[in-house]
Design a protein around this nucleic acid. Structure first.
Lengths: 186, 186
DNA sequence: ATAAAAGTTAGACATCTGTCCAAGAATTAG
DNA sequence: CTAATTCTTGGACAGATGTCTAACTTTTAT
């Protein structure tokens, strides 16, 4: 990302970012991410190529921004009141619901992206950036490093979601909770 | 991979594959994988570009082949005699030793590839292809799907290795086993 | 209202990508 | 040994990439 998104983001910048991310979301429902070109993105977004490179390093950079847009729907900060035990299921449920609510879109994307590149990229984005919101939850009752526990927690969530939605094993949320508990050893 | 590696691999083919994979291993010790071009690879390997595209789809394809070369050093098939409990530590130890034995090379690669793309790619390669060698180990004592258990097992191993070697927390193998056991709930 | 600062855009550029084909080399079979 | 088959290679190609610059527009501050 070549332009800071947080600070004094004018309406224009927001609109531009939205246009590019929407264009990519649009394209990966029709073809594989590998085949998507910057020219296609800029055509759908209806901005010049220069503007694309003004905002993003390349299409991978835009993809990361897309993940941040997607996960902004999840990372609502009301996790102060929950404890360690339920944190994993709370976050799991949010991701589960987000996917369920956009099942048609996800289906199209997965159909056109049979290699696991996209889900691996999302997974990586979640694990490497996701620690921030839960770091106050894992208390010091064990001598394991907090960051390690967090990574393992997120990885476990991702594995169950992958099993359900990518590998297509239809599990109810309750069954999924049992799986989660077994894996996580709660 | 555009050429089948298993069947009747002539000496020439082996030499060509080796030259390309060695060239890439060489290059990522000097610069980031993102910046590596096919032209650089073919120059170091001293083969024409056509030959590269004869063997590989693109540099990502070659990278996957490099992972297979690297992991061939690990996947020696003597895992029949071990049980579920020790399988995770056996595989962990092999990866741990492989990294330790090639620490100087890994250091250089990591220094030039600060984004986690390379390790994410390797992790993904291990998880998506690694199930085969251990599938006879996880017996049916639990009603969890075998594939899910395997994914979780490999993910846990990877997280601890990542913590030690990528995040640079110096742990002895014995300490690492304790961490593994805590996370995995053995 | 005006000037300075900041952001946007068009086009040119060198380089890279992946595909194709036809000539040449090497391997295999009869 | 020769012919058939397969593999390797060089060169050409259209399109994509990412950088740069200079003009242009918008925003901000005075």
């Amino acid at each position: 990302m070549r332009i800071e998104t947080k600070k004094s983001q004018s309406r224009n910048k927001k609109r531009t970012l939205l246009a590019f991310s929407a264009a990519l979301f649009n394209l990966v429902q029709k073809q594989s991410f590998e085949k998507v070109t910057v020219n296609q993105i800029r055509e759908i977004a209806d901005y010049p190529r220069s503007t694309f490179y003004n905002y993003f390093e390349d299409k991978f950079d835009l993809l990361d921004y897309c993940w941040s847009v997607l996960l902004d729907q999840i990372n609502v900060p009301n996790t102060d009141s929950i404890n360690n035990q339920t944190a994993i299921t709370v976050y799991f449920d949010r991701e589960y619901d987000l996917i369920k609510d956009n099942m048609d879109t996800f289906e199209k994307i997965l159909r056109n992206n049979p290699s696991n590149f996209l889900s691996a990229s999302l997974n990586n984005y979640i694990v490497s950036g996701g620690g921030k919101m839960f770091e106050h939850i894992f208390t010091d009752e064990t001598d394991m490093p907090k960051e390690l526990l967090l990574n393992h927690c997120f990885a476990t969530i991702t594995i169950v979601l992958d099993w359900i939605f990518i590998k297509h094993h239809d599990l109810s949320k309750e069954q999924a909770h049992v799986y989660l508990a077994n894996l996580y050893g709660i």
